[in-house]
Computed example of a mutant assay.
Amino acid sequence: MDMRDETARPGIGRVQRLQVLRSVPMGLILGHPESEVLLPTRNVPANAAIGDWLEVFVHGDSEDRPIATTERPIAQVGEFARLVVVSVGAHGAFLDWGLAKDLLLPFPLQRERVRPGESVVVRVLLDEVSGRPIATAKLERFLEDPPADLREGQAVELLLYEETDLGTKAIVDGRFGGLLYFEPGREAPAVGAFETGYVQRIRKDGKVDLTLTPTGRAAVENARDVVLEALARSGGRLGLSDASPPEAIRRTLGLSKKAFKRAIGALYRERRIRIGEDSTESVGPLGSPRGERD
């Protein structure tokens, strides 16, 4: 199947601002004389007038003619999304992408057969033959190289799309790929999940290793907030110290012992807590600048 990740005709598959040119019995004509598109009456905003600019999404109708709508799709051409399978027909699966007309995921562009009710991570693109937006679940060719300014420890947004023996492949910040490794003691998020993650390592070959656990300064700040929230909930005293067993710390706070020790060390230096043999206590109201170690 011929396809491309760009518009075959100006504006197809994208949200854009178009000017109202004239009114017709079926609705409004938008665009410019060389490239006109119909906005059907059912989508015409109240008080829309000739000369106004409207923000619309342009796609193809059942006869492959450009048509505009004021509805917003979940994703437009060039974007990744998690969509739900509505039905399966002779040529592929149909996905709910937020418009009245469902989005086709052709059989040749599926990694594996999907069924109604399932979620699938796809890229929206244009079919060169019909000029219509379609979906593909074969994503690798559309992932960019990591940006040059990407840094280890950086927070990123993840869309998980394929499980492997080592972890789950992720689309990072809607642009490039990475691998979220399985972590001992943590349940792996499901394929299709959106997560905030962190860059664990950037390999020499450009591949990106990911983690859900903050690293570096972000890790200390995150653990510090966890400890402060736990102190607030428990009336200013935790039955944990830097001598507590790792299992007790993880069970109570969801932190590793290393992260906990770094957090209470930072809070102690800020004079916000005192650390005893078997407890950690806030000094006065949380946020007080004074404190001392027993």
Rank of each mutant, 00 (worst) to 15 (best):
G98M: 06
A8M: 12
A48F: 01
F176N: 05
A223F: 09
R274W: 01
G31R: 00
L30N: 03
I50T: 12
R113L: 15
V77P: 02
T7N: 13
G185H: 15
R224H: 04
P245C: 05
S256C: 08
E140S: 13
W97F: 11
G11D: 08
E63C: 09
R271P: 02
D102F: 09
P33S: 02
V88H: 14
I249P: 02
E55D: 11
I264K: 03
F80C: 09
V226I: 10
T69D: 05
T196L: 14
A190F: 04
A100M: 10
Q19E: 11
A188C: 04
P40E: 00
A93E: 05
G284E: 02
A135L: 12
A148E: 14
G167F: 02
K261C: 13
L39I: 08
Q19V: 13
M3V: 12
T41K: 10
V124R: 04
A232F: 01
N47K: 09
F57R: 07
I67A: 07
M1N: 09
P214A: 14
V77I: 14
L166V: 11
P146T: 05
L143N: 06
L39R: 01
E71G: 14
L179R: 04
F142C: 13
A193P: 02
G206M: 06
A137I: 04
I202P: 01
R141Q: 15
P289A: 08
R82H: 04
G13H: 01
T196I: 11
R233G: 01
E36K: 04
L286P: 06
G178M: 03
Q200R: 15
T252N: 08
E195R: 15
R224I: 03
R4H: 13
R262D: 15
R262G: 14
R201Y: 12
